[in-house]
Amino acid sequence: MKLHWLVIWAGPLFLNPVTADCNITLQTVTCEESGKNLSNISTDLFQNVTKLSLKNNKITLKDGDKKILQSFFNLTELYLNENMINVLYNNSFCNLTKLVILDISNNYVSTVHKAAFAGLNQLSVLNLSYNMITQLDSDVFSFLKSLAVLNLQYNYLKSFHIKSPFKLVKIVLAGNPWTCSCDLLDLQIWLTASNVTMENEDNTTCTFQNTMEKFSIITADIQADDCKIQKASLKSIVTSTSVSKLESSTLATALTPNTTTGNNRTHAELPLIGKSWTFLAGVLGFVLSTTLLIITAIKCPTWCHYLMSYSHHRLEENDSEMFEQEFSADMSSFPTVLDTNDEEPIVIFEKNQALAPVEDGFSEDKYIDSYVTEES
């Protein structure tokens, strides 16, 4: 019976009119809001509703929707299937302490936060099938103390770590790309040891890394001993990596200069080399300029000497007499030997030095050569 005015069965208390289609039975209040192209949960719904269907809409279940859901204290069934939910945030259903059935199937859920189902102490059935979930935290279902049926079929799960105690009556895992590896060993052991019923078991298979053959996730030959060795080696690698990171961070902290000012203890850190291009450019410029100045200071006298050695001028004619006098004086310094027959003296030139003449800053001129030839 569809009503626009609702009367609660507990007494003659009348409620405000609503626009939603709600039905009243002896113990339930059902509101049907399906297929109305809603992007948000309506605020005109009765707060005492017990069964709410919001399937086939465009609801994303963000902050606004979470606040509206918190007012439905009596809600026992909630259907959010076929919407546009991408993320299940923490405390999305925290006030729904009486909720028994929650259906979020056929959405686009890829991320489920750790405390997404916090507060659902009475939840018995959870349907997360036909979503895009790639991994689930082992603690994500720890809040669901009364959970009996869990449907995770047709997601993108490759492994699922079970954290004990985890008690279910039925679980649905088919249609996921499970990998027959050590990551699946916990689930395999739990399925074998518990009394849970796995629905659609024939399609619940896994594949080993290098093969395409499918095996049942319950009977797949996953060696527990190999997994123990793998976990031990992985633990040692993680430990060594953590120690290396700790040593690196300690060294970086020790090498980072800090200055403390007053009681506020304000630390001013200098920029690290390699992370500040400005600092690096300044250091490089300083080194280059200093090197250039040092080279200039060392080479300057040599360069000046070279420049002065190239400054010469042509001999003038009035300097010939001076050259003749100097040449005669030089000739007089050589020894002479007198012959016994009183012949002309023979001048003997001694080669005192075999080395090249010392440069006096003047270059050789052909005018001098011709003058000497004529005089001789």
Rank of each mutant, 00 (worst) to 15 (best):
C94E: 15
S53T: 06
L78Q: 02
V49K: 00
N83P: 03
V29C: 07
I104A: 02
K62A: 11
T60N: 04
Q47R: 11
Q70L: 02
N81I: 03
C31K: 01
T111E: 14
N48M: 11
T97A: 13
K67H: 08
T43F: 08
E32Q: 09
T28S: 11
A115Y: 15
K66Q: 15
N83A: 05
T111D: 13
F117N: 03
F46Y: 12
T25G: 06
E82W: 06
L52N: 01
I104Q: 02
V100L: 12
K66Y: 11
D103M: 04
L26T: 12
N48T: 11
I41N: 03
F73K: 14
K58D: 10
K55N: 14
K51A: 09
F72Q: 00
K55M: 09
N107W: 05
C94G: 01
S92T: 15
T30P: 01
D65L: 04
N56D: 13
L120E: 03
F93G: 00
L80A: 05
D65G: 04
N81K: 03
V109L: 09
K114V: 12
S53I: 10
S39G: 12
E77G: 00
A116F: 09
N56E: 13
S34A: 14
T60H: 06
L99Y: 05
V112A: 07
T25P: 00
T50L: 03
I101K: 09
F93Y: 02
M84G: 04
L99S: 02
